[in-house]
């Protein structure tokens, strides 16, 4: 494929909700293009009909009884939050 440009990097960064400084975008574009070129070595092999492997072990998802197993640690967990109030996590206003 053609190398990625800074506009494409900006689009991917937006999808990832990740701010990139404008001056760093060309370097990321060049790195990403090189990585994708490396990755595309996979195309040298025909994988038609090969079953994709998502996971190293063939295992079924374990189920557990539908019982309460956790205690409420809200205060302890919120002690490390950037901002909380009345047991809620605070973020900038979303709805006017």
């Amino acid at each position: 494929m053609t190398p990625l440009g800074t506009a494409e990097v900006a689009k991917i960064a937006h999808l990832a909700r990740l701010a990139i400084r404008e001056e760093d975008a060309p370097a990321y574009a060049s790195n990403l293009s090189a990585i994708l070129e490396l990755v595309e070595q996979m195309n040298a092999v025909d994988t038609t009909g090969v079953t994709p492997m998502a996971h190293p072990l063939d295992m079924a998802q374990r189920l557990r009884p539908d019982e309460i197993s956790e205690t409420n640690y809200r205060d302890y967990f919120q002690a490390i939050a950037p901002r909380t109030e009345a047991g809620l996590y605070l973020v900038p206003k979303v709805i006017e």
């Binding site: 990625l4 991917i12 960064a13 990832a16 990740l18 701010a19 990403l32 990585i35 990755v39």
Partner: peptide
């Protein structure tokens, strides 16, 4: 996220997001 992650982590998040 932009301030919290360094360059290599950023690269891998971007590659993964693209893929």
């Amino acid at each position: 996220r932009g301030e919290g992650f360094g360059a290599e982590v950023t690269r891998r998040i971007l590659v993964g997001t693209f893929a």
